[in-house]
């Protein structure tokens, strides 16, 4: 089947099998480097992308599902070389060590802050529950998110 969707603001069209996952299409057909395979079974969050603004495990999302939708990867967050606020916050807080979980973490954090600009600790934990990090111990990531939290 032919699917057409917006990837980081640009329309793309690809041929996909009905069984292809979004992860496979992004990596093999569209050569997106920032989306990472971590487990392939929806447990780690390294492959998370935003579909219409909501975080989705691309390893569990069928490619056909994104037809006509908007897909955002971490590569789509910076504009004209200027990092987005959430990317800057991750950098400032040393929230990336090996960096492998980072794109998924940043996108999950963005989705959280977009719909809830001042999350509580519990809301941050809930949002990050599907993203694993083995290096940072999460504290710098939580701090990065909190640094952007708008005071109520």
């Amino acid at each position: 089947m032919r699917i057409k969707f917006k990837l980081d603001g640009e329309y793309v069209e690809v041929d996909a099998k009905h069984t292809d996952t979004l992860l496979k299409i992004l990596k093999d057909k569209l050569v997106v480097g920032s989306v990472h395979f971590g487990c392939g079974e929806g447990t780690c969050g390294a492959c998370i992308v935003l579909v219409n603004g909501r975080p989705r495990y691309s390893c569990l999302t069928l490619a056909g599902y994104v037809d006509g939708k908007e897909v955002t990867t971490v590569a789509g967050l910076a504009h004209d070389g200027e990092l987005s606020e959430i990317q800057k916050a991750f950098l400032e807080n040393d929230a990336a060590q090996c960096g492998y979980c980072t794109p998924g973490m940043i996108l999950t954090a963005k989705a959280l802050l977009d719909r809830n600009p001042s999350p509580t600790d519990e809301e941050i934990f809930d949002a990050l529950a599907g993203n694993l990090c083995r290096c940072t111990g999460y504290v710098p990531i939580i701090n990065a998110i909190k640094s952007l939290s708008k005071k109520r």
Binding site: Q87, A96, T102
Partner: peptide, 16 residues
């Protein structure tokens, strides 16, 4: 000192 390769990681350009 912020990591010198942090930008590559937060923009997803780091190649694994």
């Amino acid at each position: 000192v912020k990591t010198v390769d942090g930008v590559a990681k937060v923009t997803g350009s780091a190649t694994y």
